[in-house]
Simulated assay, not measured.
Amino acid sequence: MQQPASALFRLPAHLRTFLFRNAAVPQRYLSTSQCLRANGHENPLGLPRSGTPPNIAARMKRGLPEKRAIPNVGRVVAVSSAKGGVGKSTLAVNLALAMARSGISTGLLDTDIYGPSVPTLLNLEGLEPELDPNNRLVPLSAYGVKAMSMGFLVPQDNTIAWRGLMVQKAMNQLLFEVAWPKLDLLILDLPPGTGDVQLTIAQSIELSGAVIVSTPQNLALRDAVRGLDLFKKVNVPILGMVQNMSTFHCSECGHKHDIFGLDGARRKCDEMGIELLGDIPLHSRICVDADEGKPTVVADPHGPQAASFREIAAKVATALQLV
């Protein structure tokens, strides 16, 4: 088995065992085709040696893993942007907290293997999960939400440099080897992009829906649409889009400034026939709260920013029939 990064050897023994047990990683760096063959996929797309190609989609479907339920979890919602830097993790955390404060038992799974944000956002940095008698990770708690993240297993400033097979293995462990209590809702904070993590999740579990996050900027919206298209292709319901960092209200001059453009996400929602779940203003307090590990819904529960998060949570809960 390929040796893990040296930083991981400094982890407690029980967490090293969790991360690397049964890890199916080649002994050396292999090409994509070699990796597929090593894992029993001699002809992964089911293509014939000659003649007319068959229905490739049907062939691929036969090779996919069966979707499984996450034990003790009622509904699962993915929060995605397909682009970094648009406030997706901040939205996911505040959405989870707003749900929990409305009486919905909620968990939060940070699925970003390379750049996990949840430990910082929930002020859980440096804490390590325990293993239960069945060798499953016990989630940590913050502000009434149960949370799990790769950031709890790896030192904060260490880099994870894993190839696809190891990422898929870690993702499956985070999905199915966490001892969640009984939850009405599990929110998945997805990483940027439309790659290994997104596909592993979409092919492994039944998602109740996806929430897409974007700023009003056209560049961000292009990536958001790519993420939305991925969920449509794998038959995941789109609950709607959130327009983040929309308008800045200047406390000095009293004017409103549309830093990233005006209503780009609203127009895109109208164009694509999906719901605009809400509009989060560009406000320094949201950033400060996130950096301090006390998200806005907790830090200023009666403020206008928290109200915006609560309105989005109410719409998602209604769509999922949780209220």
Rank of each mutant, 00 (worst) to 15 (best):
210 A>L: 13
143 Y>M: 01
255 H>Y: 05
227 G>D: 06
205 I>G: 00
48 P>H: 08
135 N>D: 08
101 R>S: 11
113 I>P: 10
92 A>M: 06
101 R>K: 14
237 P>V: 02
245 M>D: 05
286 I>H: 05
128 E>Q: 14
178 V>Q: 01
162 W>F: 04
22 N>S: 03
47 L>H: 00
237 P>E: 03
221 L>T: 13
27 Q>D: 13
131 L>N: 00
264 G>K: 06
22 N>C: 01
162 W>T: 08
66 E>D: 09
185 L>T: 02
130 E>M: 02
260 F>H: 01
267 R>A: 06
32 T>P: 04
119 P>C: 00
96 A>P: 07
199 L>T: 02
145 V>A: 14
275 E>I: 12
63 G>Y: 12
178 V>A: 00
165 L>S: 03
257 H>R: 11
169 K>H: 06
134 N>P: 05
321 Q>A: 11
214 S>C: 08
31 S>W: 02
235 N>K: 14
213 V>E: 06
86 V>T: 11
5 A>D: 14
145 V>W: 15
218 N>Q: 12
165 L>T: 01
150 M>S: 01
1 M>S: 04
209 G>A: 10
280 I>V: 15
138 V>K: 02
77 V>S: 05
37 R>A: 10
139 P>T: 05
11 L>M: 14
198 Q>M: 04
45 L>D: 11
15 L>R: 00
165 L>N: 03
113 I>A: 07
32 T>Y: 04
4 P>Y: 09
273 G>N: 03
319 A>M: 09
255 H>M: 12
289 D>K: 08
191 P>Q: 09
70 I>Q: 00
297 V>S: 08
24 A>D: 14
156 Q>L: 11
148 M>Q: 01
246 S>Q: 01
81 S>Y: 11
227 G>Q: 10
282 L>Q: 04
228 L>Y: 11
